[in-house]
Design a protein around this nucleic acid. Structure first.
Lengths: 229, 229
DNA sequence: TAGTGGTCTAGACCACCTG
DNA sequence: AGGTGGTCTAGACCACTAG
């Protein structure tokens, strides 16, 4: 198990047990750090280490002066690892394939960049698993933010992978949704028109500047697994 | 900003800057804690605090004896808050509505429980936003794990909400996918048959015992936003 | 303004693992 | 075998905020 007989993990575990067993109920205050340190016979810093971990995971709510309480709405946080598409496919044991469909400069669409009509690189590509369509990628890359992308050979390496290695970013967001396959998409993904497709639209930024916006359309049958807890 | 002139957050920020500016490149080793402590003029524990945070976010990889290196594949972790459905709807400013469709005991389906054919409570319900269908919930609740659920009034409070308050869990998983609306689902969600629906299948456990398995089918147009970074 | 968590320190010992 | 991160300690000061 993840048990620990000593140290901050033991305290972490014991606090979790008390919450689980309703010794400390949601919304209730728990003793302060000094008190718990006395109870567990350790330094306050050790208690702090355990309670901080529980606060970071959303189990506890801590505020100076106000003290520590059990979170009222156990805000579940699901964590999702977003790998490079090639690795995602190879991890399933399938052979990875990649086909560049289209690549060219074009005026950037609305969302990309902030200062007027920037130039952008528009790339469409298909990722394959065991020679079968797996993911359709439709991407805009800001030339202002990543001019070097012109030197990349996007026929042999996906924009996804090149960007991960060469375009540092600070933050971004993803929007997940479901969409019906149109005729064009269906043909590329070897699906029937009308099939349900899992779509991810992701934007990544470096500070305020948008680096890239991408629409990822998965072949039918795709599902995304997330751990909870 | 999230800047900090002193303390571990300053070190956290400076390390991020060096990675971002490619002073330390992906896969490269960085100086050990003692060295950095000398450079920054602080205690080793302070450096440890900063580097540990970066390791937890996947930016650094740390191993005893081997040292600390910049993560090779910046494993993006997207965090998703899973609120109570009622709160999720109310946060958009819409009026929340709830309609219990069906509730009854039945032999548990395959995945639920581990020891033979357990009894389970099968609940189907519809969540509404501004009187319009928002989410169709089809849930199995293990009677072995949560016998008290029989005392709940699932006509006035959703199983979702009752479970969050009364059935502590330790872990679980969610699977996201896209599905085509069948006739029955379409009717309930006031959608056209053939529409693309966003589906979440979630299982939560308490230790080894499954508490509940639920299939959540969202009305067309639903999307889920996740922060990246 | 007093009490709480947040952080830092200097030192120490330990667990792990690579070379 | 020895160096690395992981952790603990005892004490101190600081930052925030409820009352």
């Amino acid at each position: 198990m993840s048990a620990a007989r000593t140290g901050w993990q033991a305290i972490h575990q014991e606090v979790l047990r008390r919450i689980h067993d309703r010794v400390w109920r949601p919304g209730e205050m728990i003793p302060n750090e000094a008190e718990l340190a006395r109870e567990f016979g350790c330094a306050r810093a050790t208690v702090n280490r355990a309670l901080r971990a529980l606060a970071e995971s959303g189990t506890l709510e801590r505020r100076r002066r106000a003290g520590t309480r059990v979170a009222l709405h156990p805000v579940l946080r699901a964590t999702l690892a977003i790998p490079i598409t090639r690795l995602e496919i190879e991890e399933t044991g399938a052979r990875y394939g990649y086909r560049l469909l289209e690549s060219g400069l074009a005026p950037a669409p609305g969302g990309l960049g902030c200062s007027g009509p920037d130039k952008a690189l528009h790339v469409r590509a298909l990722h394959l698993a065991d020679e079968r369509p797996y993911l359709l990628e439709d991407r805009w890359i800001s030339m202002a933010a990543v001019p070097d992308v012109l030197t990349a050979d996007l026929a042999s390496e996906s924009a996804n992978e090149w960007l991960v290695r060469n375009a540092p970013f600070t933050d971004g967001e993803s929007i997940l949704s479901a969409a019906v396959a149109g005729e064009a998409e269906a043909a590329l993904l070897e699906a029937v028109p009308g099939a349900a497709l899992f779509v991810i639209e992701r934007t990544t930024r470096d500070g305020a500047a948008v680096i890239t916006t991408v629409r990822l359309v998965h072949a039918p049958g795709y599902s995304m697994r997330m751990a909870v807890g």
